[in-house]
């Protein structure tokens, strides 16, 4: 493990300035992902800038009815927040479906969004991986890829984004507030992540050194009727093999509004716009939900071991929407 220095920034400006000046520095949130990767030699920063002491640890109700969540709010605290539980159940459920109690107590909102893929080849420096070592090849493409992508992958990378939180946030049209050396920026979460394309090592649209300071949930009364369903290989403490975040607003049985996002299928949390379009304005039925999922998944290209993700994602789409419709 590489020796590294440790810095506690005085404020956000200091954090961003230090990171901007040090090409091999990294922000440290709860460390539950970064420290593991450092031990494995996958990430080798020479300076850690610990952001957990910054005043970014509050949840604030906004005048427009939305919610701003500071980047260092711990996953456990966010899941337990009464407003989140009342107005955005999908978010609380996604958080609680992730990792373990101990990890959620450590994990931060910002760190969760920027956690790296769980592709096993990425985590092993003895294997080819374009994301870790650009140009070395993608061992997963023809390797063990049961857990990896069925949508939007490239020959260079077939990884999935592992975060449950990000899937819920994608459904909620969340905005990510970032601080960069030259100012602040709002990025819709759906625009935060990139497709792998030819450069899977570039995972987000953030500038180097950008600090996530908060996320902003827009007001969405319909989200009171929302949920998150996650399928995993054991009942707890496992990443998703399929997940759906959904918000459903019916008007006399007709879909007035719907938000749908999938996890475990692509390099980024997958907002299912096409399925939403199929559903919107139509009389809801489980068959319609199935058709909508089919439309969304029509372009799925399963790999050798993950063909099951297509019927699985379809099944949980139907399940979740039907349950919301009848709740």
């Amino acid at each position: 493990m590489r020796a590294f220095r440790y810095h506690r920034p005085a404020d956000v400006a200091d954090a961003v300035a230090v990171l901007g000046a040090e090409p091999q520095a990294a922000y440290l949130g709860g460390g539950t992902n970064l420290v593991d990767l450092m031990k494995l030699g996958v990430q080798r920063p020479d300076l850690l800038v610990d952001v957990t002491g910054l005043p970014l640890d509050s949840v604030e109700e906004l005048p427009d009815g939305g919610l701003r969540v500071g980047a260092t709010v711990r996953n456990s605290d966010l899941a337990a927040h009464p407003v989140v539980r009342r107005d955005y159940p999908v978010l609380a459920r996604a958080l609680l479906a992730a990792a373990s109690g101990q990890l959620r107590n450590m994990a931060t909102t910002g760190g969760n969004l920027l956690q790296r893929t769980r592709c096993v080849y990425f985590q092993d420096t003895g294997k080819a991986c374009n994301k870790r070592a650009p140009g070395s090849g993608c061992a997963a493409l023809h390797g063990q890829n049961r857990d990896l992508a069925v949508l939007d992958w490239s020959e260079q990378c077939v990884a999935t984004h592992p975060s449950d939180l990000a899937v819920a946030l994608a459904a909620l049209d969340t905005v990510v507030e970032v601080h960069e050396t030259d100012g602040t920026r709002d990025i819709p979460i759906t625009a935060l992540y990139r497709s792998p394309g030819a450069h899977p090592e570039r995972e987000t649209t953030l500038a180097r050194g950008a600090l996530i300071t908060a996320i902003r949930l827009p007001p969405l009364p319909a989200a009171r009727r929302s949920t998150y369903l996650k399928v995993r290989d054991r009942a707890s403490f496992a990443f998703a093999v399929g997940s759906v975040a959904a918000v459903l607003d019916l008007d006399g049985g007709v879909v007035r509004d719907v938000r749908l996002a999938y996890g475990a299928v692509a390099h980024r949390p997958w907002r299912a716009y096409r399925a939403e379009a199929e559903l919107r304005g139509r009389m809801f039925s489980p068959e319609l939900a199935g058709r909508a999922a089919d439309v969304e998944l029509a372009e799925a290209r399963p790999l050798r071991h993950n063909g099951f993700k297509v019927p699985l994602t379809r099944a949980i789409t139907v399940r979740v929407l039907s349950e919301l419709a009848s709740s």
Partner: peptide
């Protein structure tokens, strides 16, 4: 899960070997 090209088990930790 063995990867025949590398000759080892790629899910070699308790996060992936469930």
């Amino acid at each position: 899960l063995l990867d025949e090209r590398y000759g080892d088990w790629v899910n070699h930790d308790l996060a992936t070997y469930h």
